[in-house]
Write a protein that binds this DNA or RNA. Structure first.
Lengths: 239, 239
DNA sequence: GAGTGGTCTAGACCACGGT
DNA sequence: CCGTGGTCTAGACCACTCC
């Protein structure tokens, strides 16, 4: 199966909404869509549910499905395991440039975040993430050498970061802490991301720990404010 | 239909997981559950999808469905955002100005977020939060009149918002969605928060729903980028 | 009553993980 | 190979909204 039917429908509807529809405009009913795409109702509903969860449409029982007003052309950064996946979901062509990869003695703040002992080193991976050729997010990731000996650039070029950490080192993050801050881009940052100086951006500080409560990753990332939204869901547990 | 089948299955599975199962323990397969509950596979999958989205189980293609590690900590996961508490923790003197409080017919986007029917009204509470006398966060909160009849300004002056909603109306949020965005402040916003025009800020859109899956609160807030960090914690189960 | 989304059934085949 | 979750079909009835 190349790509599931419902995913193709998601992309198609999303494109049509973006290009040809207005907020609060009514989409065709599920039965109409079913005929248009020659699929079953279940498949249509899979697609609509995805669009609803991502805030692109809203559904009213007995009335119909409508284009959401809050729909911004922005990508969700929250709970992001994989930039690549998020981009594919949004129907865009993701690209990652691994710019530099070095073994360094980290600055103090990084050493603290990773709980490093005196003299311990980390790998530093600098990446630029693009979608459809447009730079969107700049990140610096620090990985303790102690946990990931002999990590190489070619490891990273052949798999996702978390794929490598799991497969080569059997390291999986159990908990992730993220701090999100609003900033204005300085000269260098704005140049890298291709926007004006002073443009708003999200700074994301991310710390991941593994099952042994050991810090395994620290990342600071800068994301274009006009292209990203950070979405979270929180549960207040029952009883 | 009293309560949908899949919802009853959700409750049942959730109870069993909580009382009798360990993290990473395997659940019965979808085909087994289908026989246990005498329902179709679609219905089982609706239930499992909900449990998965709420982080209670995780599913692995070709392997099965497993209990998440979330229930390891019986701690309350939600970072229910309490400005007052956060500030006290930070050693600052918190202050809340309740600026206006009215019963209004909300704009369309708000009505949509709260799932209001035609003609339903909401209370609108405008607040300014300060720390050590310095304004940090401006917020507009919308509360459906249907859920909170006879809510008054003096209720709010004598307790926290969530305290009132719980004590007077027995309404507690079970799930909270928040969207965070980086913006530049316009003239009015910058004046209210006492910073320059164009200064970076976090826009926070918050939607809370209660145990009956009814939207009980919608808030949009603007927080100074130089003074405010949004902190989250996430539990992972995926590879 | 007509049209909408919400729930549900009883099947089917595909893709993945392990034996 | 088998068992798993992932996708999909072609129907059905229910609950809601509006006329």
């Amino acid at each position: 199966m190349a790509e599931p039917l419902y995913r193709q429908i998601i992309w198609d509807l999303e494109t049509k909404i973006k290009n040809n529809m207005q907020p609060n405009e009514k989409l065709p009913s599920e039965r109409q869509l079913l005929e248009q795409y020659h699929v079953s109702r279940n498949t249509i509903r899979l697609a609509l549910r995805d669009l609803e969860e991502r805030g692109i449409v809203y559904r009213l029982h007995g009335k119909g499905t409508f284009v959401s007003t809050v729909y911004l052309d922005q990508i969700n950064l929250g709970n992001m395991y994989s930039f690549t996946n998020e981009m594919k979901l949004a129907g865009r062509k993701p690209q990652t440039q691994n710019r530099t990869f070095d073994l360094i003695s980290p600055e103090k703040s990084v050493a603290e975040q990773l709980g490093l002992k005196e003299g311990e080193k980390t790998y530093k991976l600098v990446r630029l993430r693009l979608a459809d050729g447009e730079p969107l997010l700049y990140s610096e990731t620090f990985l303790p050498e102690r946990l990931f000996p002999d990590l190489t650039m070619s490891d990273l070029n052949n798999d996702t970061l978390y794929g490598v950490l799991k497969k080569k080192y059997n390291e999986v993050s159990v908990m992730v802490f993220e701090d999100i801050q609003a900033v204005s881009l300085n000269k260098e940052e704005s140049k890298i991301l291709g926007v004006d100086i002073g443009a708003p951006a999200l700074m994301i500080y991310r710390r991941a720990i593994d099952e042994n409560n050991v810090a395994m990753e620290f990342t600071r990332a800068t994301a274009r404010g006009d292209k990203f939204i950070y979405r979270t869901r929180q549960y207040n547990n029952l009883s």
